[in-house]
Simulated scan of single mutants.
Amino acid sequence: MATGWAGDGAVQEQIDATVNDAVQRARQQLRQGPGRERCEACDAPIPAARRQAVPGVRLCVSCQEAHDHERRAVGPYNRRGSKDSQLR
């Protein structure tokens, strides 16, 4: 059942788009390849245990925490709202 100008599957399409965007972001964050021995941001040594635990590690713990904090600014909301939802 559609309301307004939205098609029958508009809500599900919005949900699917949100999920697909989240999956894409998660896939982009996956690390690959050998880890670095020194942090690429501050050149501090990265311990062997961290390199073994996190494949493809590129940042030390403190730089990784700062990087993660910056990435949290991206909200989990779908900003592609339909024209119908913007008119309400």
Rank of each mutant, 00 (worst) to 15 (best):
P34Q: 14
Q29C: 04
G33Y: 01
T18W: 00
C60P: 01
G81W: 08
L30E: 01
E65D: 10
A73W: 06
P76T: 01
V74L: 11
A53M: 03
A66P: 01
D84A: 14
A6C: 04
A22Q: 12
A48E: 14
P55V: 12
R79T: 14
G33P: 00
E70L: 03
N20E: 15
D16L: 13
R72W: 10
C39A: 10
A73M: 05
R58D: 01
Y77E: 15
A53K: 12
C63E: 05
P76Q: 15
Q12N: 04
P47V: 03
V11A: 11
A49P: 02
Q28V: 00
R27F: 05
P47R: 08
S85R: 15
D68F: 07
V19N: 07
A41R: 10
Q12M: 11
G9V: 09
A26T: 09
Y77V: 15
R50N: 00
V74G: 03
R31M: 05
P76R: 11
R58Q: 11
R72Q: 14
Q14E: 06
I15G: 00
A53N: 04
P47G: 08
Q12T: 09
C60R: 09
A10I: 05
G33T: 03
R80G: 13
I15S: 03
Q24T: 15
D43I: 00
D21R: 05
V19E: 13
M1H: 06
Q64P: 00
E65R: 13
C39K: 08
G81T: 10
N20R: 15
H67W: 02
C39M: 10
A53F: 05
D84M: 05
E65T: 13
A6E: 12
E65S: 11
M1A: 05
V54T: 03
A41Y: 08
E13W: 04
A73I: 09
V54A: 07
R72E: 14
A53Y: 03
V61L: 09
Q86V: 04
R38H: 14
N20W: 07
I46F: 09
D43Q: 11
D8W: 14
R79G: 11
L87S: 07
R51S: 08
G35I: 00
